[in-house]
Simulated assay, not measured.
Amino acid sequence: MELYINAFAHYLPDDRVPNSYFKDVNGLDDEWIRTRTGISTRSKAGENENTNTMALEAVKRLNEKLPFPIEEVDLIVAATYSPHDTVATAAHMIQRHFKARAARCLTVSAACSSFINAMEIVEGYFAMNKATKAIVVASEHNTEYSNETCPQSGHLWGDGSVAIAISTMPEGEKAARILNIFTRGLGHIGKADTAVYLRPHHGGIGMPEGRDVFINACHYMIEGLNAVTNSQGIKLTDLKFIASHQANKRIMATVARQIDFPEDHMLSNIEEVGNTGCPSCAIALSQNLDRVDHGDLVALSVFGGGYSCGAVLLQFL
C-alpha cells in the first residue's frame, strides 16, 4: 500500500525570547548561547495558548489545504511529550472541533521522536485497513515546563506545532509519497535514563547530560537516514534536503559533515525558534516547502531523549 502526505501546515507563536533575556536569568550571554547552540531567539506560547490550542491552530491551517473534507478523517494521532491534558488530548480536541465523528484518536509520546512514531502508527492502521484518511499533529509547549534558571538547558526551548494529512491518494498541492518510515528505541544505550527528563513539579524539563545526547544524536540520526535510504536503494547524496530534529545547530553541522552533505540543504529554524521538540523537523520542512521541487527526495531524521531515533524518506510529486 502506498501512502502519501497530502498537505503540511505549521503554527508558531508570535512571541520571541532573545538570548539577552537569559543573562540575568541563568548567567548565559548571547555569544555563549549562539556559539554552542545556534539559537538567537526562541518561540514562546502566549498566556492563553497551550499544547492543545497550538495543535488546533496547525490543523486549522492544514484544513485550508486538504484535498478532502476534514470530516472524512478516520484517524487522528497527536504527538507530544509536553501535554496540556493527558485525558482530553490534542487528538480529541481536534476531533471535537472539526466534528470528525468517525475518527479514532490517540496520543503518542517518544520524546523528540514522537512525530515520526505517530507517522508509523498511521502506517500500521492503514495496513490493517482500519483507516484511510489520517491527520498527524505534533505540538510542544516546552516553555510551560522549562526551568529558565537552569544554565544547562533553560535557554534551549521553544514552542510550536505542525500537522500533516496522510492518505492513499497522491493528491494535494505539495503531495509527497512516503517511501519509508524507520523508528528505533534506544533506552539501553549511554545515559538514556538520565540525559533528558520532564518531571512536572519535580524540576520540569531538563537536559543534564548534553554531551551524551550530542554524541548519540549524531550517530543515530545518521543510522536512521541510512536505514530509510538503503531500503530504497538510494544514496544519501541523492537527497535534496534533510529536515532534522532542531536540537542544536552543531549537531546538524556534524551530521552534514559526517555524511558529506551540503549544510545549506540541512533545513533549519533553530536560530529563530529554538528547540521546539518533536514537531521541529516537520516545522522546518513545512517552512521550506517552496524550496522543494517535483521529484525531490527529502528525509526527516530525529533523535529523542529516553533514548529513541527515527527517520522518514519522502519523494515529492
Score class of each variant (00 low, 15 high):
7 A>Y: 13
12 L>N: 12
12 L>T: 12
24 D>F: 06
28 L>G: 07
30 D>F: 12
30 D>I: 10
30 D>R: 13
31 E>C: 11
33 I>V: 07
37 T>C: 11
38 G>P: 01
40 S>T: 08
41 T>G: 05
42 R>S: 00
47 E>R: 15
47 E>M: 15
49 E>C: 10
51 T>M: 11
54 M>C: 09
57 E>I: 00
66 L>V: 05
70 I>P: 01
76 I>L: 10
80 T>C: 06
91 A>G: 11
99 K>N: 06
112 C>D: 05
116 I>E: 07
122 V>S: 01
124 G>P: 01
124 G>V: 04
128 M>Y: 15
130 K>H: 07
135 I>N: 01
151 P>G: 08
151 P>A: 11
151 P>K: 14
157 W>D: 00
158 G>S: 07
162 V>K: 02
164 I>V: 12
170 P>I: 05
176 A>F: 01
179 L>T: 03
180 N>S: 14
182 F>L: 06
184 R>A: 10
196 V>I: 15
198 L>E: 03
202 H>W: 11
213 V>K: 04
213 V>G: 08
216 N>S: 13
219 H>I: 15
226 N>A: 13
226 N>Q: 14
242 I>M: 14
245 H>L: 12
247 A>T: 08
252 M>A: 07
258 Q>T: 11
260 D>K: 13
264 D>G: 01
267 L>C: 08
272 E>Q: 13
284 A>Q: 04
286 S>P: 02
288 N>I: 11
292 V>M: 14
295 G>I: 09
309 C>Q: 11
309 C>N: 11
310 G>K: 05
315 Q>F: 10
317 L>D: 07
